[in-house]
Simulated scan of single mutants.
Amino acid sequence: MRLLLVEDDQMIGESVLDILRAEGYAVDWVKDGYLADAALGAQSYDLVLLDLGLPGLDGIEVLRALRGRKQRTPVLIATARDSVDQRIRGLDEGADDYVLKPYDLGELLARVRALLRRAAGRAEPAYEHLGVVIQPATREVSVAGEPVVLSSREWAVLEPLIARPGMVLSRAQLEEKIFGWGDEVSSNAVEVYVHGLRKKLGSGLIQTVRGVGYMVPKA
């Protein structure tokens, strides 16, 4: 999953960036509203973590522009603006959730997972498909009840596929979910991770749609 972190505070930004990447997310980080708006206009994200008090362009304006483009990307506002009126305004402008600074990083991750579940049209905390069970909260994976260890990049490939059975994702779309800005991308990276997943989870879980991409078939 690829996230956009919009945060101008260096210390907070570094802490959040580190914990999100440790959880296997690909994360791009911008520090002002104009850069956030440009990134959202050019790149598809699975979720935006948005501060409001930004230099250049206020977070509410970034949110308004995003929704004005009819983009449905989940937005989690994380800000020190703690008045009820500010929270109401943010939600009414199209935010999906709100967390106040200083926030607990564990709670932040739980809110991110909840929004990603909702965006995928799922309510249950675990994904179970064709004998494979994945637990996003703990990143545990099992096949027929037996635990399987995945690398962070293998997890980043598997999660978006198993979350939406029947949906085909191209190699480029999967690369976007694995790699953030500045990451070195080899030409066969996705193929390598898919091959590893098939060895660990069974050859039938991830199917190749020739000339298009990859999918997890519907049950």
Results as ranks from 00 to 15, higher is better:
residue 70 K to Q: 13
residue 150 L to D: 12
residue 172 A to T: 03
residue 41 G to M: 08
residue 132 V to L: 15
residue 54 L to I: 09
residue 62 V to T: 08
residue 182 G to S: 10
residue 186 S to W: 07
residue 2 R to C: 00
residue 178 I to A: 07
residue 23 E to Y: 10
residue 175 E to A: 10
residue 100 L to D: 12
residue 61 E to T: 10
residue 211 G to E: 13
residue 80 A to M: 08
residue 117 R to Y: 00
residue 103 Y to S: 13
residue 137 A to D: 12
residue 103 Y to M: 12
residue 12 I to L: 08
residue 108 L to W: 03
residue 102 P to Y: 01
residue 79 T to W: 00
residue 217 P to D: 00
residue 170 S to T: 04
residue 49 L to H: 03
residue 115 L to R: 14
residue 145 G to P: 00
residue 178 I to E: 05
residue 47 L to P: 07
residue 58 D to A: 03
residue 78 A to R: 08
residue 75 V to G: 14
residue 123 A to Y: 01
residue 188 N to F: 10
residue 154 E to S: 06
residue 137 A to K: 15
residue 167 M to Y: 04
residue 181 W to D: 15
residue 164 R to I: 13
residue 110 A to H: 05
residue 84 V to Y: 09
residue 149 V to F: 02
residue 136 P to N: 11
residue 58 D to F: 00
residue 165 P to E: 09
residue 212 V to F: 04
residue 17 L to Q: 03
residue 164 R to Q: 09
residue 89 R to A: 13
residue 123 A to V: 01
residue 91 L to G: 05
residue 95 A to W: 00
residue 124 E to T: 12
residue 143 V to E: 11
residue 208 T to E: 15
residue 137 A to Q: 12
residue 169 L to A: 14
residue 159 E to S: 11
residue 128 E to F: 12
residue 128 E to Q: 12
residue 101 K to T: 13
residue 18 D to R: 04
residue 214 Y to V: 08
residue 59 G to H: 10
residue 70 K to D: 13
residue 199 K to E: 07
residue 170 S to E: 01
residue 101 K to G: 15
residue 121 G to R: 01
residue 201 L to P: 04
residue 152 S to F: 01
residue 209 V to G: 06
residue 5 L to C: 03
residue 49 L to E: 13
residue 136 P to Q: 11
residue 154 E to P: 10
residue 60 I to G: 06
residue 132 V to I: 15
residue 3 L to S: 06
residue 59 G to Y: 04
residue 72 R to M: 10
residue 59 G to A: 08
residue 212 V to Q: 11
residue 19 I to S: 09
residue 148 V to A: 13
residue 131 G to H: 14
residue 6 V to M: 10
residue 14 E to I: 07
residue 33 G to R: 10
residue 132 V to D: 07
residue 91 L to K: 11
residue 133 V to Q: 11
